[in-house]
Design a protein around this nucleic acid. Structure first.
Ligand code: FES
Ligand code: FES
Lengths: 161, 161
DNA sequence: TTTATCACGGACAAATTGTATCCTTAATTT
DNA sequence: AAATTAAGGATACAATTTGTCCGTGATAAA
């Protein structure tokens, strides 16, 4: 039960976009180089973000991505689900129906109580991510990353855009 | 980020063991038949539970598994981690170190703030499972499953043990 | 208008992980 | 001694993840 790397990539890309001045577009090439990951593959993650409506895309030369709404209206859950899908982490196969001494194959049953707990855990996980907005992430970033590094990074990306 | 079926199997097997009278052993053959899953493969999950010290095993004819401690001392997290491992659901690859305009390759850094939130979510997930004891699961079971079904199942397993 | 740059998206390939079977060994009961 | 059971290694197959390649269409700059 491990999240793919795409999630880490997408989250970091979104923090980059969130720090850009309004109307600035960043191409997947620049995002890929900045994070040291394969451009074509990162592009898939960006497409997922675009499909989820989290980023706006612009084709053509000097095209790229920008946030489609303010960073305080985008949660980490939005990003994770855009890339990873919204399937639950626990997949109940209804093995209780295989019970050989009853005939539960067709009967309607309430959700299995074991699955219910797993879903509850899944929801607790999602709640944390839902409450954390991209704007909060940026705020945290400014706490732990030295200002010069932050500024240099921003300039680097802007210089390529 | 999906848990394997082994987790569902292991959880259900543990509820079966928890309902057995003291000193009763249940073989993997019976557990497999009861849940309608391949015996050899289920056996791997049971080995994991044994390795984690959650069940006691007995070799030889009429051997099998039993809980190694009371059901209120075993949490769902114990079971899930025994089967699935205790790796975090989010695997930070430290892509921030690839930043081309700084040299972070070797520097010591505090944990990335993005990873920190993911770990926090991971912990929230684990907390729910940690708080739910196997004994609670049995109690829930008695709420939602009709008594006759419960009794018949117990008798079926006992009859094979 | 031409050219270069970009996102999009399909097809494909490689690597990793999940699912499942088989078979040998050792322990234990009958 | 014979039958039964868990342990565990080897292996095969399927599914998913990770990554590459290339063609298409949009668009801005020359
Ligand atoms: S039947 Fe799926 S968790 Fe119980
Ligand atoms: S570097 Fe891994 S989450 Fe930030």
């Amino acid at each position: 039960m491990i999240l793919g790397n795409q999630v880490e990539w997408a989250l970091h890309c979104m923090t980059v976009l969130a720090r850009m001045p309004e109307e600035t577009l960043v191409s997947s090439k620049v995002l890929a180089e900045f994070h040291g990951v394969p451009k074509e593959y990162l592009s898939k993650a960006m497409q997922a973000l675009a499909a989820a409506g989290l980023v706006h895309t612009q084709l053509g030369p000097r095209g790229g991505y920008s946030l489609s709404r303010p960073a305080n209206k985008i949660s980490m859950l939005d990003i994770v689900e855009a890339v990873e899908g919204d399937k639950k982490t626990f997949n109940c196969q209804e093995i209780r129906r295989n019970n050989p001494c009853t005939n539960l194959k067709t009967v309607k049953l309430p959700v299995c109580n074991i699955a219910a707990v797993m879903y509850q855990a899944d929801n607790a996980w999602r709640d944390v991510l839902r409450k954390k907005k991209l704007s909060d992430v940026i705020a945290d970033l400014k706490e732990i990353v030295p200002r010069p590094v932050l500024d240099k990074s921003l300039d680097w990306v802007l210089g390529k855009s």
